[in-house]
Design a protein around this nucleic acid. Structure first.
Lengths: 354, 354
DNA sequence: AAAACTGATGTAACGCGTTACATCTCTATT
DNA sequence: AATAGAGATGTAACGCGTTACATCAGTTTT
């Protein structure tokens, strides 16, 4: 293959020194005479020389690249986490490959293999399969077969099987539901519904479980018919709310799986003349950008985005550098309530729009 | 450096063939006896062997990696374009590095150098500096010094200087403004304002220029005091609208730099009891996800996201493979009007809220 | 003055996949 | 039977940065 860029050997020749010396200048390693260093430095600049990371990585077995696999970057939650991951990885001098699986398991496998071929130093997984109970097992096998010993960190997800070099960082959605319920019951709500999401997906299952378990801690009623699952989208919120409105008796507060669904719920109400928070209080999840756009703004539980990203990258690099993870390889971070306008005390009277 | 993964030599040894033969099986190149091929194949699978892309890239001078540099992936516009870029790059077997500059020029330079060291096959640039008139010139120098001859494609931006291996793909925002004005004047509007954005940034300058030029084609009035620049955010929309409302005489229709600004404008109106589209028609730009969330939904001009991404990747790969770009290296794509509820005919009477 | 040591620099192997070229076997042609 | 040609496979150099080890000059110690 013909070469086109200047290499370390070209620089060495031009300086009348060996490649070892140039390499030492490049890495500030070993002893180099000040005069030589300046000479080499100046030639490097004159030639706009930059070392080839491939060659470096081939020898050092470290590419300074990491891979992030997630379902869709257009989803605000993933975009925010990704941005924090990238910010955090600057410190470790890592550059990141982003792979969107579009929730397609085959594509996820494909990208996983691809990143392995690219010799990434670590893998960050969020959402998608690590969020589902199905198909997760096969994925662990893939990791074992092709990724090991490259370390993996899961963000807000889990692995159904044992992969030796794995850590995880999560938002504590279970505790967040307790916060939500505490807040809503504190406002005076006793009848609480749940809209959106899908069973078999972690963020739904956890919240549903918490909703059930919290009954012993707080005073509220929760009925099967007030739970309308659908999806994670605006339209899913619209559909779920329409379903709920068919019920004879209704809750006074609604917890939505996320802010997109909450927006659908709120807008459905408003277009029917139902007041939010007057007739219904609507609580969201995620603190996504649209929570400030709806009117009323959505009161929601925020993920600790920055920590999610920085701790994940930190964990990953500890594993990369074989630093012991001091026993904790799975960490759960508190979510925080962000109050906007979509929740208030329930009305005493019969609903005005009925 | 100790090795940990199995290499082509291990496979060759296990099969009692040469590395060349294994390589031929791997790449389906050259003649290999069917029996040998099967043997090699089976050993590859048994060992879960995957070729090392670094080594391959080092020799072939092709990494099958491309870099995307943009300001912030959390912005819906960039996320959507990015997703399309990634989809398109699958066909070319390319994986993509994503770098967020946070609109910091130093960071943009840093990432550019980094991607060059990683030997990316091509670079995709969107927004940020390629969108500003300032500092752009220095960036071209950086490209020339360190990126050349790696090809570059600019999406919705420009380079103030000549970089030999560059193409661009843009949404035709100039024509889109004519569409907007045609639509609004068709509805009966004669007084049109413009909110949001910032001078010196392409998407603002283009629209402002078109707003002025279209006066000869359509019948409308446009006054300096109806143009309130601010930023590209929701808050920027709120601020700009508040400024506009201080004017004695007001337009009946407002064009916003993008949908975020339009949302701010709409919500500002609504909270003041001003009707949209009753009292003001509000037109957005971009067709971002929030345009369906506001009430009313935002009538907006949509970017041809899919083409933007696929053509950019296509251009890039033509340059990578030295295919002539048949004269057109800069292409401009039509935007399309998406009607929702934020625009209507102007009222005849004095505004009700005054 | 010899030995020991420090600092500066060079040599060459290494990591790993690819491919030009060489070699060898076997069939087909005349 | 001799030659040409096709097919299969091996050898070794290459791309490029890194580093263990060797070498050599110059200085310090005794």
């Amino acid at each position: 293959m013909k070469k086109v860029k200047v290499s370390i050997r070209d620089i060495a020749k031009e300086c009348n020194v060996s490649v070892a010396t140039v390499s030492r200048v490049l890495n500030n390693s070993g002893a180099v005479k000040e005069e030589t260093r300046r000479l080499v430095q100046s030639v490097i600049e004159r030639y706009n020389y930059r070392p080839n990371e491939l060659a470096r990585g081939l020898f050092t077995q470290r590419t300074k690249s990491i891979g992030v696999i997630l379902p869709e970057i257009t989803s605000h939650f993933f975009a925010k986490v990704f941005l924090e991951i990238e910010k955090a990885s600057i410190e470790y001098e890592q550059t990141v490959f982003l792979c969107n699986t579009l929730s397609d398991n085959a594509l996820q496998d494909f990208y996983t293999l691809r990143l392995s071929e690219k010799q990434v130093d670590g893998l960050l997984l969020l959402g998608g399969r690590v969020n589902e109970t199905k198909t997760n097992v096969q994925y662990v096998k893939l990791l074992k077969d092709y990724i090991f010993p490259t370390p993996v960190v899961i963000i807000n997800g889990k692995l159904d099987g044992y992969y030796d070099r794995c850590a995880s960082v999560s938002s504590d959605e279970h505790e967040a539901m307790f916060q939500a319920l505490d807040y809503l019951t504190g406002l005076g709500h006793r009848k609480i519904g749940f809209l959106g999401g899908k069973r078999g997906i972690m963020s739904t299952d956890i919240k549903l479980k918490a909703l059930d378990e919290a009954k012993s801690s707080f005073d509220y009623e929760m009925r099967e018919e007030w739970i309308k699952l659908s999806s994670y989208t605006y339209q899913g919120g619209v559909n779920a709310m329409n379903e709920l409105l068919k019920e004879k008796e209704l809750p006074t507060a609604i917890i939505s799986i996320n802010d997109e669904v909450a927006a659908g719920v709120i807008n459905t109400c408003i277009s029917k003349g139902i007041k939010v928070p007057g007739d219904f209080s609507v609580l969201g999840f995620d603190d996504s950008s649209i929570s400030t756009i709806t009117m009323p703004g959505i009161t929601t539980l925020a993920h600790p985005y920055e920590e999610l990203g920085s701790i994940a990258v930190n964990f990953l690099n500890n594993m990369i550098n074989e630093k012991p993870l001091k026993d904790v390889t799975n960490i759960s971070l508190k979510m925080s309530l962000v109050e906007r306008e979509s929740c208030a005390a329930p009305r005493r009277s019969i609903r005005s729009w009925k």
